[in-house]
């Protein structure tokens, strides 16, 4: 990766770019992960709510549990950028 002809500015610029890419990957992949996890829970939750409206609060809780993953990704992304 490191080219001897690179100037200090170029190295710094590419570091910034790498950070941005890293942050993007952190948020993007965790977003996909949370989405995949919530997919099954969400459909089951809708089914359960259709059967019995009272469980809405509970199933909402269960549905949003995987959201933590993307929040972690977001925090990592923000830490990388700032």
């Amino acid at each position: 990766m490191v080219d001897v002809n690179m100037t200090l500015e170029m190295v710094q610029a590419s570091q910034v770019g790498m950070k941005a890419i890293g942050a993007g990957i952190a948020v993007g992949l965790t977003g996909i992960g949370a989405g995949v996890a919530e997919m099954a829970i969400g459909s089951a939750a809708v089914g359960a709510t259709a059967e019995n409206k009272d469980v809405f609060g509970l199933v909402l809780l269960l549905t949003v549990i995987p959201e933590t993953i993307v929040i972690f990704g977001l925090v990592v992304g923000l830490l990388l950028l700032f």
Binding site: E67, T68, I71, L74, V75, L78
Partner: peptide, 9 residues
């Protein structure tokens, strides 16, 4: 930790 960080949203 996760609940506190969740407020970052």
């Amino acid at each position: 930790i996760s609940h506190v960080l969740s407020y970052a949203r």
